[in-house]
Design a binder for these strands. Sequence first.
DNA 1: TTCCCTGCAAAAGTTTTGCACTACT
DNA 2: AGTAGTGCAAAACTTTTGCAGGGAA
Lengths: 167, 167
Amino acid sequence: MARNAETTGTSSTAVGRLSPAKVEQKIAEFHGRLKERGFKSTGQRDDIAAVFFELGRHVSAEELYDEVRKRNPHVGYATIYRTLKLLKECDLLYERHFDDAQARYEAAGEQHHDHFICERCGRIIEFKNDELERLQQVVARELGVALLRHKVELYGLCSDCRKSARN
Amino acid sequence: MARNAETTGTSSTAVGRLSPAKVEQKIAEFHGRLKERGFKSTGQRDDIAAVFFELGRHVSAEELYDEVRKRNPHVGYATIYRTLKLLKECDLLYERHFDDAQARYEAAGEQHHDHFICERCGRIIEFKNDELERLQQVVARELGVALLRHKVELYGLCSDCRKSARN
DNA sequence: TTCCCTGCAAAAGTTTTGCACTACT
DNA sequence: AGTAGTGCAAAACTTTTGCAGGGAA
């Protein structure tokens, strides 16, 4: 059989804003999960969640705060952080710690993926490679450890920045 | 031929204290590189570097500060951070950002490696897997990006913690 | 002797918390 | 009505910086 490791392929996903309908759906999901867990839905939580899902992925708390305040200038940082924590508990977002000091938050999608981060322009590309996933299990087995989660981050220059670097 | 990807194998390295002779050697190297770069050698820098290399890898600034002050109670946090930055500029240490808020510092070794971090006891195991390295280059090529550096971190339970978790 | 280095304290940047008040359910 | 949520400000935590005094070359 000719299939080798390379055939596994790497897929990259586009990140971007969700359609208004999708945002509505996410908010509805948030409501449900809050209720399940005994928390309340509030106007602020809805505003924050809506802005978060509209913006797309990899926002910092600061960016989110600025955007939310355009819509609702009363919201404080504390509520932003508390709501981000709630969204995390509801499995609707992941918290990422790339090399910056500040955390970035990403809407939880269906499937696991890893990240490439451009060191020049900050662009983040998500990708998935099955062979890479499998190898990490192999490594874990060889180390005798139980793998709960993992993080693969590639840093470098994205294709656009490579071009401008050549000038 | 029976050699397949698996044969690449995973090697894990033991991290630990350096012998006094090795520490001396590292300090001498530090002196040389400071001079090359137009910096001075001082008692504090020597103390900090000595304690850093004696302790072994993956220390936080706080741990280093506490240990250094056992030897020299006069040293301030600022000098710890400034000296860590110098050691980094001298290519004698790497700064790592695992999931904690605080950075951890590791003596620069000869070869690149990745990390497994035990989420229960905090133990850090270094490992190297050539196939994993190669695959990352493949992914970078498929994404059309230039790879400058990368980070692979596995999180889970180390063998000891797996055992005690079974009780 | 000349700067660089050091320690202290204060600042900076991100995230959390205490408290009185507000508003969901 | 009752309890959880909110905003503000202050605290917490890690790391950096300004400045006056001290020490290496």
